[in-house]
Design a protein around this nucleic acid. Structure first.
Lengths: 140, 140
DNA sequence: CCTACATCCTCTAGCGACTAGAGGTGCAAG
DNA sequence: CTTGCACCTCTAGTCGCTAGAGGATGTAGG
């Protein structure tokens, strides 16, 4: 069991030092050991947990969802229906967000294209912002 | 000049009452008049401004960007290059976000499809989260 | 004129997920 | 033994609101 410092754990996991301490403070990391001088020390399983959290955060899961997923991981004989449900919910969120961003993209492109680079009173960017009715897709 | 209350302004602009007060507190709305009893009163130009802010927020512009856009709108003889730049920057952000979300979507779909609805120790959702290397596209 | 009730007012605190900084301790190298 | 970095705890700040307390105003009905 090689124990490493929080700085080294940060380097290896890609999670920043204050963020690791934050995750500990909100109870995402199981109790970990301290050195004589009260410094945190991490072992490989802690690094796995940090990597799990980081990956889940990158995929946009909320902390509370991650807490549930970690509980499931800790108890591998549970049925995985809830993990499945969490991932599916996230997928639906992502799909909606993509649709909405595509609409925004279209709107922004029209604005930027329509800008004649003159003065503000002829600027399509300002004009469209001021009048929602000038949007191509009035859904947002 | 018909003056209306904050509640009516909220109804007409689609911006909630506390949010209108918040925008005023951070200086997004120009000085507005009050009734005898110290209640805010709004006129049509204030409603236009609220609609502008709301539309810009829906398009994802940050408050500070909106502050700049409002200054530009207030002074229509300025060149519109900065409005253009703000909109372009936002467009680039949106495009990046869409790309990144599409990658997440692919990952989540693989996770959800691969889940055999059995127990956690065979669950692909947990497995992939735990091991970034199992991602199809290891870019995030 | 009085009462009831909705709406308004100000002020402070809370959300999520960190991030920044102050002020102090531990530890390894020279 | 000192230098200097990495660590510790704690508090407060970020963004864009949102919620709630506690009180004032405005309006409609009796």
């Amino acid at each position: 069991m090689k124990k490493i410092t929080i700085g080294e754990a940060a380097r290896q996991s890609g999670v920043k030092v204050p963020t690791i301490r934050y995750y500990e403070s909100i109870g995402l990391l199981s109790e970990l050991s301290r050195s004589e001088g009260n410094q945190r020390s991490y072992e490989p399983s802690d690094l796995d947990r940090l990597a799990f959290i980081r990956h889940a955060r990158e995929l946009g899961f909320e902390i509370e969802a991650i807490r549930t997923l970690l509980h499931l991981q800790d108890d591998p004989h549970q049925p995985c229906a809830s993990a499945d449900a969490i991932a599916k919910a996230r997928l639906i969120e992502v799909e909606q967000r993509i649709r909405s961003l595509n609409a925004l993209k279209a709107e922004l492109e029209l604005m930027v294209e329509g800008c004649g680079h003159g003065r503000v009173d002829q600027c399509r960017v300002i004009e469209v912002l001021a009048d929602h009715g000038k949007c191509a897709h009035p859904h947002h």
